[in-house]
């Protein structure tokens, strides 16, 4: 059974990666998940967890996943905003865990926006 003591091993494995990252703050990609009551009840939590899983799996050191409150479009939740440096913000809606994985692969890794999930489609 895992305990806090096991963190030491992960820490040692990660320390070198962290040092590399400190030098490259400017190319940080931000993934912002809407997690107010509306987002949570629509399924934002599995979406958040899917981003965490896929980013860890692919060892993407320059991606940060954060949360925000209600973005004012409750019926389009779960909503996620992607901020890539020097690019326009991209807003996705009606996400689920599977779509989140697709966004990591296509958008964050390969730079191709997943146009089928864009919020623009809803307007």
């Amino acid at each position: 059974m895992k305990s806090i003591a096991d963190i030491k091993a992960i820490r040692e494995r990660m320390q070198s990666q962290i040092i590399m990252r400190d030098n490259s703050d400017s190319d940080e990609i931000r993934v912002v998940v809407g997690m107010a009551t509306c987002g949570i009840s629509a399924g934002a939590r599995p979406v958040y967890n899917a981003f965490i899983d896929e980013i860890a799996k692919r060892n993407l050191a320059n991606v940060k996943v954060t949360r925000t409150g209600c973005l004012g479009m409750c019926k389009l939740e779960p909503i996620v905003e992607i901020y890539v440096p020097n690019k326009e913000k991209v807003t996705y809606c009606h996400l689920d865990a599977e779509k989140a994985v697709n966004i990591v692969v296509n958008h964050l890794v390969n730079g191709n926006v997943c146009t089928e999930y864009l919020v623009n489609n809803e307007e």
């Binding site: 059974m1 895992k2 305990s3 096991d6 963190i7 962290i18 899983d53 980013i55 860890a56």
Partner: peptide, 28 residues
């Protein structure tokens, strides 16, 4: 607080740390 002490400067919000914590909670 105890997790942060063990992490010794590595941010708590690193995906690999979060996944470890999620597994630890589920197991316990």
């Amino acid at each position: 607080q105890e997790v942060k002490e063990e992490l010794d400067g590595i941010p708590l919000d690193e995906p690999q740390i979060l996944i470890f914590l999620r597994d630890m909670i589920n197991e316990n």
